[in-house]
Write a protein that binds this DNA or RNA. Structure first.
Lengths: 199, 199
DNA sequence: CCACGCTATCGACACGGTGTCGAGAAAGTC
DNA sequence: GACTTTCTCGACACCGTGTCGATAGCGTGG
C-alpha cells in the first residue's frame, strides 16, 4: 500500500511504478485513478485532517481544568498524526513543492490557529490566561512548534523528542506560555525576580 | 546566481541547466565543480551555519538581563536566516531528501539544542529559571518552534508571522517557558488560580 | 622546443521517471 | 446483440540527470 511505501522512502524516491505494483495495477491504470502521486497524498491529507477535526469537535471548550483541555487538544494531533507518521512527514516535505498540498494545509492549519487564538482570548477574558500582547501571533508560533516537533519526532530526526515525551513537553510549553506560572510558594530559597520579557 | 534562482522556485524545479546558465558555464562544467545541485546547497548551509555560530559566540553568556540575552540569541537566527531566506526555506525542504543535508543540519541544530539546554540548567541553578522537568526536551521544542516559524515566515506561508513580529513573539514564548511569569501584582480583579500543568 | 600533467570546457550518450494516447477488454444497459 | 461506460494495457515522446571521452589552454621541467 501507498502508506507502506512512504514508511520506507521519501515521496521523491517512490516511483509511480511501485505504487501501481503495490496496488497490483499497471502504471497507466494508476493514472486513470489519480493525476499524480501527489494527488494521492492530497487525498490522504484530507482524511487525516477530517479525523483531527472530528476528534477536536468532540472535545468541546475548556472547562474547569483548562490545562487538561489543552493537553487533550494537543493529544489529538499527537495521536492522529502519530497514527500516520509517514504521511505526516511526507506532507511536510511535499508542501514545499506541491501547490495544492500547500494551500490545503494552509487552510486547515489556519483554522487550528484561529481556534487556538480565540480560545486564548476567551481564557484571558475569564481572567485565567496571562496577558499576551498578540494572541494570534502566539498561536501561530505554538502551532508551528507542534507541527515541527511532531514531524521531527516521527521522522526519527536527531535531535528530536521521543514519542512518549511529546505530549508532556508540548503541553507544558503551551500552558506555561498561555497561563504563565503560579506565584512561587513562599518559603524555601532566595529567588531572584524573573526577568521582564518585553525589553 | 544560485541563491537568486532559489528565490523564485523550489530546488526540485530548478534544473542544473539553469544554474549553469546563471553562472555562464555549460551544464557539464557545472558537474566539474559540484557533484549535484544538492551539493551546492550543502555549501550554502555551511556558510550560513558558520555565520550563526560566529555571531552566537560574540554574545557570550546571560548576564544581569537574561531576557535580553535570549532575545539577542534568537535575533541571530532571525537575522542570519532572514538574510538568506530562500536558502533557509530550501534547506528545510531538501533535508527530507538529501542525507548529507539532513545529517549536517542534525549536527548543527544538535549543538544549538545543547547550548540552549545547558543555559537553561545554568539559569535554573542561579534560581532564575522556573522548574523544568526536562530542560533538554524543552530546548528541543523551542528550537523546533523557531525553525518552523522562521521558515514559514520566509516562505510567505499562511498562516505565518510577519518579519517584524518574529523576534518579539519568539522571545516572549521562550522567556515565558523558561522563566515563567512574575507573580501577579496584588490588587485589581479576582483572578482564578492558574491551572496546574502536570495533568 | 616539446612533453607532461593539471585545469577547465564541451558535446554526446545512456538511463530512468513522467505523463499522454489510442487501442481494446470486460461488464453493465437498452 | 449492439452500444456505452469502466477499466487496463503497451508504446511513445519528453525531460532532466549524471557520466564519458575528446580536447583545449597553460604552466613547468627536461
Amino acid at each position: 500500500m501507498f502508506e507502506g511505501l512512504l514508511r520506507m522512502r521519501p515521496l521523491a524516491e517512490i516511483t509511480v511504478d511501485e505504487i501501481a505494483a503495490g496496488a497490483a495495477i499497471s502504471r497507466s491504470a494508476f493514472y486513470f485513478y489519480f493525476a499524480s502521486k501527489q494527488a494521492v497524498l492530497l487525498e490522504l491529507l484530507d482524511r487525516m485532517v477530517a479525523e483531527v477535526d472530528e476528534r477536536l469537535a468532540g472535545i468541546g471548550v475548556p472547562g474547569d481544568d483548562p490545562a487538561a483541555w489543552w493537553r487533550s487538544s494537543i493529544g489529538v494531533f499527537v495521536d492522529v498524526f502519530g497514527d500516520h507518521r509517514a504521511v505526516s512527514v511526507t506532507l511536510a516535505e511535499a508542501r514545499a513543492t506541491v501547490p495544492e498540498i500547500r494551500e490545503e494545509w494552509a487552510r486547515r492549519s489556519g483554522r487550528w490557529v484561529d481556534l487556538t487564538a480565540s480560545t486564548i482570548v476567551a481564557e484571558r477574558r475569564k481572567g485565567r490566561a496571562r496577558e499576551i500582547v498578540d494572541p494570534r501571533a502566539t498561536s501561530v508560533a505554538l502551532n508551528a512548534m507542534n507541527e515541527r516537533v511532531l514531524v521531527a519526532s516521527f521522522a526519527g530526526e536527531q535531535p528530536a523528542l521521543g514519542q512518549d515525551e511529546l505530549l508532556d513537553v508540548l503541553a507544558d510549553v503551551w500552558c506555561t506560555t498561555i497561563y504563565g506560572t503560579p506565584p512561587p510558594l513562599t518559603g524555601g530559597g532566595r529567588r531572584a525576580a524573573p526577568p521582564r520579557h518585553g525589553g
